[in-house]
Design a protein around this nucleic acid. Sequence first.
DNA 1: ACCACCTGTATGGTTTTTCTGACACATGAA
DNA 2: TTCATGTGTCAGAAAAACCATACAGGTGGT
Lengths: 114, 114
Amino acid sequence: MEDPITANDLLKIVGALANPHRLRIVAALAGRRNYVSQLARDLNISRPLLHLHLQKLEGAGLVRGTLELSEDGKAMKYFEATPFSIRITPELIALVAENLTFDEPPPESTEAAQ
Amino acid sequence: MEDPITANDLLKIVGALANPHRLRIVAALAGRRNYVSQLARDLNISRPLLHLHLQKLEGAGLVRGTLELSEDGKAMKYFEATPFSIRITPELIALVAENLTFDEPPPESTEAAQ
DNA sequence: ACCACCTGTATGGTTTTTCTGACACATGAA
DNA sequence: TTCATGTGTCAGAAAAACCATACAGGTGGT
C-alpha cells in the first residue's frame, strides 16, 4: 500500500520548507551528502542553528542523517536529502484536510510521502 | 513562456500552507467559492482572523478574491482557490535555491506557478 | 432610528520560531 | 597536555507569527 499522506504530514513538510535557510539546506543536500560541520561552513551559518534546522527537516522526512565513523575515528553525522516528491493542489488539500487534528499526534515516525 | 518558479514564490507558497487554519481554508474553497463572513461561520473562526489568513493565501496566489455586489446591494467578497499545482522535489528546490535573495523583493504581483 | 447583514483595520497580548553564545564530550595528532 | 577536529545541547534574547477584542464604514429593511 502506498502511503496516503495525512494533513499532519503535509503540515510538517510545508512547515519545514517555509524558511530560506532550510531551502538552501535541502538544496545543498540534494545531490551530494555532507556532514553538519562542513555544511555549516558551506552555507555560512552557525552549527547550532544548522542543527536546529536539520532537526526540523528530518522530522518532516525531507532529510535523513546517519552517524558514521570516519577513517581517523571521528564520529561524523552525514545528511542527505530523501527522494521525496509531493504534488500540492487544492484537491489534495481538500482531501487531507478532512481529518485534520488540531492537537499534535504522538511523536510520529519520520517519513516523506510520494 | 511558462513561469519558472522562483525561490521567493516557493517560500511564499509553502509559508502560506504551513498552518492548519489556512489548510482548512483552501480545502473549503477548493470546490465551492464563498464569501468571508459565511466562510468564517463555516470554519468556526473569527472574521478578522480569517481575513488575515486569506491575505496570506492571496499573497501567495493560492486563493483569489473578488468584491461583488449581491442582489440586495451588499458588498461581498467572494474567494475561490486558484488551480495551482506545484510538485516539490529536492531537485526543484536545488534549482530555485540558486538565486535565493534573503531580503524580500518589492511587493510582487500575486501568482501561483505550474 | 434601529437592527441585521456585509466589509475592512488597528491595537495589544500571547505564543511560536529563530538565533547566538556558551557549554560538555569525544577522537587523533603534534 | 594542548590543539584541532567532530558531535550534541542548553539558556535566553530577538523576531515573527498568531489571535481576540475592539472599532469604523457601508447597504437595505423594519
